[in-house]
């Protein structure tokens, strides 16, 4: 993926990633779903040049199949979708 003129690698080809402004700071950062394990990882900042960043927030949603974004009051919220189409909102605790 690309941000601010730099390229970043995240996860594997089976992972699902989306970009959103999770912390309402005006910067879109990635979130990842690994469907095999249900792991949802959320990143609030991009790594420094040549560096790597670990997720600030991780959670397991065993039945998760996809990610979605909804915008509330100018901030993005990550929604985890299950096979029935129901969505759970992942809250970011600062």
């Amino acid at each position: 993926m690309v941000h601010d003129g730099r390229r970043f690698a995240l996860g594997t080809t089976d992972d699902i990633t989306v970009l959103g402004d999770w912390s309402c700071d005006g910067v879109d950062t990635p979130a990842l779903l690994r469907p095999q394990t249900g792991l949802v990882a959320l990143y609030l900042a991009w790594p420094e040049a040549g560096g790597a960043a670990s997720p600030e927030h991780t959670e397991i949603f065993p039945a998760a199949t996809n990610l979605d974004i909804t915008t509330v009051d100018g901030c993005d919220q990550l929604r985890v979708i299950d096979p029935s189409g129901s969505a759970l909102i992942v809250e970011v605790r600062s």
Binding site: R7, L10, A52, E59, I60
Partner: peptide, 21 residues
């Protein structure tokens, strides 16, 4: 705790900088 259950995924993916586009 959610962090503990998340640790079942032994290798949480890292976001890696690959350099300028």
């Amino acid at each position: 705790p959610a962090e503990a259950s998340a640790s079942e995924d032994a290798d949480p993916p890292e976001l890696i900088d690959l350099g300028p586009v």
